[in-house]
Amino acid sequence: MAMTLAGRDRRRALALLSPAYLWLTVAVFLPLSAMAFFSFLSDVPFGGKDWHATLDNYRAFFQTATYATLLWKSLKLGLIVTVVSVVVGFPCAYVLAKIVKGRSREALFLLVILPFWSNSLVRIFSWAIVLRGNGVLDRAVNAILPWDVKLNLMFSPTAIVIGLVHSYLPYVILTSYLALQAIDDSLIEAARSLGARRRTILWRLILPLAAPGILAGAVLIFVPVVGSFMEPRLLGGRVGTYYGTVIEDQFVAVFNWPLGAALSFILLAVVLAILAAASPILRRART
């Protein structure tokens, strides 16, 4: 009797899960397999071009230092953007979760999520208007300060970081918010009644308990930023060549899909390796 029930349960679970798995197969697994297939070809397999299987695309990564240099540059960018986002986003999430209540919290939430509702290109172009030499920021600063300042942040690594932080900040705010919400206020009160100072409460209580949320947000930011191409291209100008822009070039400008696919898979492998290396920390944070 128990056996048949378990069997029926399994069948029901399968029926309920199948749409999700079907979706994953069609939208994730098939395109990824196609790209994996491309990455081992000598040329794109359509339009009557000659092609054969090869490892040259992966070899190309190691033949020059260019790709490795760019990958390192992109990883550093990912790290900087993640750290800045956490430093800016965590206090924001704390205020939302523990300090403001009711209506004003809803309003603040709306402001946090608002960037998600606008097209990312629109966001980048508005930053271009703000950061450009003699742009909005330049004029505002010059209107306040008595001496002449030339900021001109446009087309610099700083501009790229600003654009990316703005795009990805909501992730870390939302995940940290959820983690902070789950912390029972009475724990904090207990700590305070036992004489813990504010800094001790933050370091020994709140941060460890909120760590899973912060880390989840950090991972959500780090992975896409390493492969980002639009922000570096539009805000970085001359210095905006990163690993992601080179991959984009392979697909859009020079039509070397196989090399583009191989570079993407190398990026995927590196990112997975980093996450695997960080997984002990991630696991400890969860318990």
Binding site: R132, G133, N134, F155, G236, G237, R238, G240
Partner: peptide, 23 residues
Amino acid sequence: LLPQMTTFWSSENDWNQFMSAGD
């Protein structure tokens, strides 16, 4: 040449915007 440059342009539209902004 590269350190002389502000940014690359890729389309006529791009070019017009950068030129009119004084970049």
